[in-house]
Design a protein around this nucleic acid. Structure first.
Lengths: 271, 271
DNA sequence: CCGGCTCGTCCGGAATATTGGATACTAATC
DNA sequence: GATTAGTATCCAATATTCCGGACGAGCCGG
């Protein structure tokens, strides 16, 4: 069944030479990327003229290209003439780093927090309308909870969820909730949108969130926000524990989860 | 002249709506940029399907675009499915930051060094084949030297020049020198390429460079490399002084310029 | 003031990417 | 195993970008 090895029948007879990189999609995109790499390799500002001769791009095309990139902040004029990489690329670079560090540093921090408090610890992010559990470390007394790693749960089921949506304004939050709010297994999670929003604001303000019995009978959690360089809540760390231990150690657990989240925030450049 | 306000006569009657950003150049480039911004705003991985619906790009186009961007490392597959911003964007972001910080932090550090040692201090970078003086602070006894701010001098005329080219391998270095080596005003600068290369290697290894009378009678300089996050020498700081004071304070000046360069390196993420 | 140079813009024909749909493939879900 | 939803590739017509060259402006040295 079409198990022939030849993946891409195109370019059966290559016109020899130009073995640099095989042609792919849009030419202008490749050229834009080449401009970036040229600037990267150069390490400093250059002129359009140099780009034209170095990259063999027609003059008019180069100007158009540079204009498009400059208009969006991917290139910017340098002080003393010439152009260089723009601020937008810096923003993108930081976003990449935050995403990578979130898993790399996050897993370490989640483990440490589990060792400290002995309970189950999770790190979650917002994906579309739902909360996604990215990392989980089981405590010494594993609890049967809904969320496995990779599972998605409605934001109104968990304390972390309330933090993850706390960046949205009322309008965006309302429309997100209208799509995603569900009755929780125990039926105790808030489903009333205005009330939920009120709680979201309160939790964000106080810097942590908690929940009890809303999703699991006899269990609850405390959560703290992970804030990135731009001030957004990009993730939340939560401790899940049985009701009795949660009540008994509420202060200590709250402090610990907040410290862990603050540490991860700092790693992400978030103050 | 031609001071009429209308920049681009095309699109005289805009089809209303889509006032976001006026059309410019290549459509695919704009779309690639939109994908970046979409990912940035999202803060986490997404799927091509989502890009298609969010950005209103035809499916086949989106796949081609994503492939082009992925092939060059501007997007990369995320662990658990989906794609996200790629490492290349991180590199570009750091290059942007280094460039900006070089002037911002560099000017401060150059000033401080001038105040400390009382001599003329310069910060230079490599531009094409020549050394470009980016910043200069006059010492208490200004020397008449060739290099003004913004001036370009052959790399073999200055101690800084030897450091700035020290990242290049022998081949690249040779061809650069063949184009740019000049006799210095005093005639004492090295013009023999193999010998010069040997000196470049030595200076880079020992972490600083010096020169005496090669460009100015009765003057010389000591220079130290500014190393960025990727280990490249992106700039050099140098102290220029009259021969007698240079001989007298060689150790102190060398130490001071190395400290200043190390501080700037650290600010640029260079260890 | 002139010629020579680079920078930057503009234009119509030619080359090429874009598009929508058909088509597999994969992975869940029933 | 069948069904659905989503992912990914291929193709030919066509709408778009790209190209080369012409043009104007600024700058320099003579």
């Amino acid at each position: 069944m079409t198990q022939d090895g030849k993946r891409r029948p195109r370019a059966a007879a290559a016109p020899l030479s130009s073995a640099t990189d095989d042609v792919g999609g849009s030419r202008s995109v490749r050229r834009a990327l080449e401009i970036f790499e040229f600037l990267l390799q150069l390490g400093g500002p250059t002129t359009i003229g140099e780009i034209v001769s170095a990259l063999q791009i027609p003059k008019s095309t180069a100007y158009e290209l540079v204009r498009t990139l400059s208009d969006s902040g991917y290139l910017e004029p340098s002080r003393r003439g010439g152009i260089f990489l723009g601020r937008k690329l810096f923003e993108l670079g930081m976003a990449y780093r935050a995403q990578v560090d979130l898993l790399r540093d996050g897993s370490q921090i989640v483990e440490d927090l589990r060792d400290t408090c002995g309970e189950t610890v999770q790190l979650s992010v917002l994906e579309n309308d739902m909360m996604l559990v990215l990392l989980k470390e089981e405590g010494s007394h594993p609890i049967r909870i809904i969320s496995r790693v990779g599972s998605r749960v409605p934001v109104n089921w968990a304390a972390s969820g309330r933090l993850l949506v706390s960046d949205l304004d009322d309008g965006a939050l309302t429309s997100l909730l209208e799509k995603s709010v569900r009755q929780s297994p125990t039926g105790r999670a808030l489903t009333d949108i205005p009330k939920f929003i009120q709680q979201v604001r309160k939790f964000r303000k106080q810097g942590y969130a908690s929940e009890l019995n809303e999703t699991n009978e006899h269990a609850g959690c405390v959560a703290a926000p992970v804030i990135d360089g731009s001030g957004r809540c990009v993730a939340a760390i939560s401790i899940v524990a049985p009701e009795h231990r949660l009540k008994q150690n509420r202060e200590a657990l709250t402090r610990q989860v907040r410290e862990a989240a603050a540490m991860l925030s700092k790693r992400l450049g978030g103050r």
